[in-house]
Design a protein around this nucleic acid. Structure first.
Lengths: 345, 345
DNA sequence: CTGTTAGCGCGTTCAA
DNA sequence: TTGAACGCGCTAACAG
């Protein structure tokens, strides 16, 4: 009943089989078990077999936390996005997850609700998990957040938007160019009285970037680019339908509406279906994203398609490259987009 | 240049500010800093102020890994679902995330691709992170997985399906009852030649449960319940449209189709729109889930709506209750569903 | 190829 | 209310 006995009771680390237990069972040193788990080729076949048997017999599962503490890095990849209710981010996360799936890295999910202060706080939190790297949406962050990300000496991939300056690596699209592209298409199609429709534009600055591209292109063509409509609801089909009607009421002479995403645009077409409004004869409708629904509508929706899943895959690949020891220049990738012209314009 | 100096260089725990650094800066013992971070009321206001200043000055961020190791529990909640490309799971995850958001718990995301062996392996992995608890889809798991979950002594919430026996807590719906409910509606509406259409039914047994409920109810009414169509593609709108046409070709006398989810059913209606097939006059269409799209279609889709987001919220609440020390009986909740009759039937 | 030693950064326990 | 000592479980470094 000496000190040792009391020491034993100090922590609640009961129940679980530890590396030490396995070592005892196999008659080797703990480090040998560690090697069998992490660097099997450093151990002779004989001992390896013995250890593996012990592992199976005891049902040993490594404590990744302890390993992470000792080696200053857990195999965790935080992914920080603005929202989990927006399909775009989900697709990207899916791409990341699928690429990382069999590499032993786990995704730690965080969402900021488009709030940069919240984002900064979340970054602090997740860095507390000694992650192997981090993937984060956007190129704009609070100064403090950027400092922390740079200081942590871990690969950082910024996704969604593509731009000149990133912390470490960057995969995304050029939103202004997207806006210009669709606006150009509308002008070329002969539309002249065009409105841009968004929702929550105050929160999601990438929508503003697209709008600015749109406006710029229209004004280049001598067309009024300032017709804008938005509100504060989430970008649902219903909201799209409502904004569609509002836009037509606000600007009765409209011949085309450029929606900031396919959710809204699809909502508009569905609303038009319900009301017997003819698209594009009465009014043309264009979207952005290339959601699966866009091609199933009647009329099918003209849209700019972005490879969201692939963006996630590429982000994960950049991360893995860095984790594999690839140094040097920023890894950057403009994932691009594609104008898909369909019947709605 | 003695032992200490070499010791310092042993690990790469460089750069980061530690609790010890803060303690030195504030002129207190490390444990006092720890208390300020975790149990502020145990520290006098004077010292607390001093420590807080030091924290700010140095930009200290706690190392959650070290804390987790010392206290045998990181504030991580793994969420294990079959797929990240299925909206249902996304909505549930969103509910979980929103509920856990401000509690300091982080979601660790894992997906199994409907493979129970993969699930078991994933469970082993995530338990290695000493999670505070775990949320997992389904009531069916490998025996080994169940043992591990029971052995880990942590709250476990099984979600999506509601059933008699769970490991610890359970929130979900009764899939067979859903199938019965919609089948009853179709029969009451006067439909008699009804097919059930699913996709990937071999993988997702919950779809089979709904089908069996459907079949049971039809046969109770003396109607052939064995008309079934499925394929191996994901449940997209396009697949729905294709299966719709296939079903009508396979069973030319059909007067109603019961789709296993709204994605397929919506795809069917969109396909009908394109082809000028009249729903429900030529054929009725019913779905399951209550996706936002369902009410925006023409005709609007009859569906059984499930509160997916709320299911996630409830799962998180059960978890928090357990983490708050609530013991005893299994926490169980049949989240229910609602038949929403619209124009498509 | 295998083992010894030390410590990652923190929280628990016990003592003051 | 504050502090000292110890160890959570594992791995890095070094020695054999």
């Amino acid at each position: 009943m000496g000190k040792t006995e009391r020491g034993r009771r100090r922590h609640k680390g009961v129940g679980r089989v530890t590396l030490g237990d396995v070592a005892k069972h196999a008659g080797v040193a703990p480090i040998t078990v560690s090697r069998v788990m992490n660097n099997p080729d450093q151990v002779s076949e004989k001992l390896r077999k013995r250890v593996e048997q012990a592992v199976d017999a005891l049902g040993y599962v490594p404590n990744l936390i302890a390993g992470g503490l000792a080696s200053a890095g857990t195999r965790v990849i935080p992914v920080i996005v603005p929202s989990l209710s927006i399909l775009t981010y989900i697709d990207v996360i899916h791409g990341i997850q699928q690429t990382l799936e069999d590499t032993g890295y786990q995704l730690l999910l965080g969402s900021t609700d488009f709030d940069l202060d919240r984002e900064a706080a979340l970054i602090d939190t997740v860095l507390g998990y000694s992650p192997s790297g981090i993937i984060i949406a956007g190129l704009r962050h609070r100064e403090r957040a950027i400092q922390r990300l740079e200081a942590c000496q871990r690969p950082v991939v910024e996704i969604m938007e593509y731009g000149a300056s990133c912390i470490d690596s960057n995969v995304g699209v050029d939103n202004a160019e997207v806006g210009r592209c669709m606006a150009r298409h509308l002008v070329e199609r002969g539309y002249r009285r065009i409105a841009y429709v968004g929702s929550r534009m105050d929160r999601d600055y990438r929508t503003i970037q697209r709008y600015e591209g749109h406006r710029e292109m229209l004004e280049l063509a001598g067309i009024d680019g300032s017709r804008l409509l938005q509100n504060d609801e989430a970008a649902s089909y219903k909201t799209g339908g409502r904004l569609f009607m509002e836009a037509m009421a606000s600007y009765p002479d409209l011949d085309a509406i450029h929606f900031t995403n396919d959710n809204l645009a699809a909502g508009a077409i569905l609303e038009a279906n319900r009301r017997g409004i003819r698209v594009p004869d009465d009014i043309a409708v264009a979207g952005y994203l290339g959601l699966p629904l866009s091609e199933c509508l009647t009329p099918a929706l003209t849209t700019v398609s972005v490879p969201r899943f692939e963006m996630g895959v590429q982000a994960a690949k950049f991360l893995l490259a860095r984790l594999d020891g690839e140094q040097g220049e920023a890894l950057r990738c403009d994932i691009g987009f594609e104008l898909i012209v369909r019947d709605s314009t």
